[in-house]
């Protein structure tokens, strides 16, 4: 008999690991990813592959040669960052831009803070926003969804529904005209709207989100408060003037809303750690998203809103503590 092992209690572990959590997220993203392949074709496959491979490569190189540590690629966090980045860019983006985006996401937003778990901002979003600000033209020329599997790389480009509505309203076009220019709500919900890879199908993103909720990878607090505040805030605006503001349903199913709700805002590392904090965080993201969408310069505001709220997470963590046991004794 060898030596006995000794350590402090507890002596058993529930078997949950970072790896399981991360690959769970990847599985949840699969349906939406496949849908994007279907709608955008080779371009989408190329973008996804490049983003994932370069994100993992940068993480490997940086841990190995700069931080001089053992690379932890198998935990899947770099793959998720790559996937999320791919979800956030149009399928006709030049390859070198994606590589730059992955470098910014992994190198600047993640590893410079110390790697997994230490980054204050969602790496994929930092990468996306960096690309959006640096290369606005390429980042906003969205290929139009063509149901025929387009093998060529030069798809026709056009604005997203959000872009159409935003521009139209700014130019004073009547709401009814604009509504006729965009696909129907069912089409948009199932996935026939142009945009980034991950914006294509709200339905499949929703499915992935429900999968993560059931697997307890995420909790309900952030999605519910995010969606709730979007519906309430945009609903109030719509009730005030239906001609100047689009209805809440439109906000919910267009753009990166579903992706933001389930995959970006719920990122464990960059979201608050207490239920109360998570509710405030979700509400804040929802309100800022609508503010940017309605009054901002960009048609889409989810990624900016999440990054802004990421910045206040440390404060939310220290302001909203969980309720302690026995804090207010309730006798009876």
């Amino acid at each position: 008999m060898g030596l006995l092992t000794v350590s402090g209690s507890p002596h058993i572990h529930g078997g949950l690991s970072v790896k399981k959590l991360m690959w769970g997220v990847v599985i949840a993203m699969m349906p939406a990813m496949l849908a994007s392949f279907y709608y955008f074709g080779m371009g989408a496959i190329k973008v996804t592959l490049v983003a994932v491979v370069s994100a993992m490569l940068f993480e490997y190189l940086i841990t190995k040669f700069i931080l001089k540590k053992e690379p932890q690629l198998h935990d899947g966090s770099a793959a998720i960052t790559g996937l999320l980045l791919a979800f956030n860019v149009p399928s006709n983006l030049p390859i070198w831009m994606i590589v730059v985006g992955a470098l910014v996401a992994i190198g600047i937003a993640k590893m410079s803070f110390g790697g997994l778990g230490k980054n204050p901002f969602n790496p994929a979003l930092v990468g996306r926003v960096f690309l959006l600000i640096s290369f606005p033209v390429q980042m906003t020329s969205w290929p139009v969804v063509d149901k025929v599997f387009p093998l060529g790389l030069d798809a026709i480009t056009g604005p997203t529904p959000l872009g159409i509505v935003k521009e139209g309203l700014d130019n004073g076009e009547p709401m009814s005209d604009l509504m006729s220019q965009i696909p129907s709500y069912t089409q948009m919900f199932i996935g026939e709207s142009g945009g980034s890879l991950g914006e294509v199908s709200a339905l499949l993103l929703l499915l992935g989100g429900i999968f993560m909720l059931l697997r307890k990878i995420i909790t309900w607090h952030i999605p519910v408060s995010f969606l709730g505040s979007v519906i309430i805030f945009s609903g109030i605006l719509w009730l005030i003037d239906p001609n100047a503001y689009v209805n809440p349903m439109f906000h919910l199913i267009t753009g990166g809303m579903m992706m933001g709700v389930f995959f970006m805002a719920t990122d464990m590392v960059t979201s608050p750690m207490t239920p109360k904090g998570q509710l405030i965080f979700g509400t804040g993201v929802g309100i800022i998203t609508i503010i940017i969408r309605v009054w901002g310069a960009f048609p889409e505001g989810v990624s900016f809103a999440i990054l802004i709220m990421n910045a206040v997470v440390p404060h939310l963590n220290s302001l909203f503590k969980p309720k302690r046991f026995g804090k207010e004794a309730s006798n009876g």
């Binding site: 060898g2 030596l3 006995l4 092992t5 000794v6 350590s7 402090g8």
Partner: peptide
């Protein structure tokens, strides 16, 4: 000579109380 194999937090101020 070691009598067992310690697997846990290596801080002296913790292990001094444990074993």
């Amino acid at each position: 000579i070691p009598k067992f194999d310690y697997d846990g937090d290596q801080t002296c101020s913790f292990t001094t109380n444990l074993t």
